[in-house]
């Protein structure tokens, strides 16, 4: 039996895959039938109800799923990996460097902060123009800016590191 921990919207769900057609979610056992329509669409029959679910794999452990107009991002880990990542998380309370990457390609319109300045979590740090719109990039955490890797008026690529915060 394989045990997985699925994290979505800050909640954790324990799923045990008993065999191909039986899963246990928490303490409840469910009969399931999974059918692949194409790489991005699956049918999942649970008891007497069938769901159409769109999926996109974002990385090794992350999926984006859509069902009946709802959208979720899930992180799936084996029980073992989940335990390991919890340990790492608890250890990482000492200061470390966070890299901020551009969520989209765009033109740098404004840079609010410079090297050495303090930022609060959720504080706007950069404004990128993309798709005719100005988009604020906010800091994912509080800290001190260590590097600024972009210039006013330049363009940035998606996923390029634009700033580091300590």
């Amino acid at each position: 039996m394989n045990e997985y921990v699925v994290t979505l919207d800050g909640k954790k769900k324990e799923i045990k895959v008993v065999n191909e057609s039986t899963v246990r979610i928490g303490d409840i056992e469910k009969e399931v039938i999974i059918s692949k329509v194409n790489n991005y669409l699956y049918l999942l029959k649970i008891a007497n109800k069938t769901y159409e679910i769109t999926t996109q794999k974002l990385n090794e452990e992350k999926f984006r799923l859509g069902v009946d107009g709802h959208l979720f991002e899930t992180v799936v880990r084996t029980r073992l990996k989940e335990n390991a990542s919890e340990v790492i998380k608890n250890k990482s309370n000492e200061p470390h460097i966070t890299k901020i990457v551009g969520p989209m390609p765009g033109l740098v319109l404004k840079i609010f902060k410079g090297v050495g300045e303090h930022v609060e979590e959720n504080e706007p740090i950069v404004v990128l123009e993309a798709m005719k719109m100005e988009n604020e990039i906010r800091s994912p955490k509080s800290g001190v800016i260590k590097e600024v890797l972009l210039k006013h008026g330049s363009t940035v690529e998606k996923d390029a590191v634009i700033l580091t915060i300590e």
């Binding site: 919207d9 699956y42 769901y51 069902v67």
Partner: peptide, 22 residues
Amino acid sequence: YDSEEYEDVVSILSALLKNKEN
């Protein structure tokens, strides 16, 4: 409004996909 039903459904599918991969 995101109901628990849908959360369970996508969690089960995620686990099954990961399981298949493994």
